[in-house]
Computed example of a mutant assay.
Amino acid sequence: MKYFYYHWNKSRGDQFDHWGTSDWYFEIGQDGYVSRSIQIYASSNALFYSEQHIEDVYGVLPEGKFELIGEEKEISKSEFECVIDSTKFTNVASTI
């Protein structure tokens, strides 16, 4: 597995646009697909997606192979897990 962090400096452009900018965290499997993703917004709303929770009214687990755009920062598994452990998610009661 590989783990990445990315700051998205734009708002969503949808009904949740008022949440503001967001920090994204990705867990990428050996196959190159996102297996878990986290989105944390300036408003403190946070979303979690995984193969066990693929989609809801707020969004979806990214589809297709993960492609680097050059602005991501690779992080460790422990950093990724720390974000999960310290975040209260808007869309799931607990993570899997």
Score class of each variant (00 low, 15 high):
residue 39 Q to S: 13
residue 32 G to L: 08
residue 2 K to Q: 15
residue 67 E to V: 10
residue 36 R to A: 08
residue 55 E to F: 14
residue 4 F to W: 09
residue 64 G to N: 00
residue 24 W to D: 09
residue 64 G to Q: 03
residue 23 D to I: 05
residue 71 E to F: 11
residue 18 H to L: 14
residue 6 Y to I: 09
residue 44 S to E: 11
residue 6 Y to A: 04
residue 65 K to P: 00
residue 46 A to D: 12
residue 10 K to E: 06
residue 50 S to E: 06
residue 61 L to Y: 10
residue 51 E to S: 13
residue 14 D to M: 13
residue 59 G to E: 06
residue 29 G to T: 05
residue 18 H to W: 12
residue 24 W to K: 08
residue 46 A to W: 07
residue 5 Y to M: 00
residue 6 Y to K: 15
residue 71 E to S: 15
residue 33 Y to R: 12
residue 68 L to F: 00
residue 55 E to G: 04
residue 10 K to V: 06
residue 30 Q to I: 11
residue 45 N to E: 14
residue 46 A to M: 07
residue 61 L to E: 05
residue 66 F to Q: 03
residue 59 G to M: 03
residue 42 A to V: 11
residue 7 H to K: 08
residue 15 Q to Y: 11
residue 23 D to S: 09
residue 3 Y to G: 01
residue 59 G to C: 03
residue 25 Y to D: 00
residue 17 D to G: 07
residue 35 S to G: 10
residue 40 I to L: 10
residue 38 I to A: 04
residue 36 R to L: 08
residue 29 G to F: 10
residue 67 E to K: 08
residue 41 Y to Q: 02
residue 54 I to T: 13
residue 68 L to W: 01
residue 22 S to Q: 06
residue 25 Y to H: 02
residue 16 F to H: 12
residue 56 D to N: 08
residue 15 Q to M: 14
residue 57 V to Y: 06
residue 18 H to C: 12
residue 39 Q to P: 01
residue 17 D to T: 04
residue 12 R to A: 09
residue 58 Y to N: 04
residue 11 S to P: 03
residue 29 G to C: 07
residue 11 S to C: 10
residue 12 R to T: 02
residue 60 V to P: 02
residue 43 S to L: 02
residue 48 F to N: 02
residue 49 Y to V: 14
residue 71 E to P: 04
residue 17 D to M: 10
residue 63 E to P: 08
residue 35 S to D: 13
residue 30 Q to A: 13
residue 4 F to D: 01
residue 19 W to T: 02
residue 40 I to K: 10
residue 66 F to Y: 12
residue 67 E to R: 12
residue 24 W to I: 12
residue 61 L to R: 12
residue 64 G to I: 02
residue 43 S to Q: 03
residue 29 G to H: 06
residue 28 I to V: 15
residue 12 R to I: 09
residue 63 E to L: 13
residue 46 A to Y: 04
residue 69 I to Q: 08
residue 22 S to Y: 08
residue 9 N to Q: 05
residue 58 Y to T: 00
residue 64 G to K: 01
residue 67 E to T: 06
residue 54 I to F: 14
residue 34 V to S: 01
residue 21 T to V: 12
residue 61 L to D: 04
residue 3 Y to N: 00
residue 52 Q to A: 15
residue 47 L to V: 01
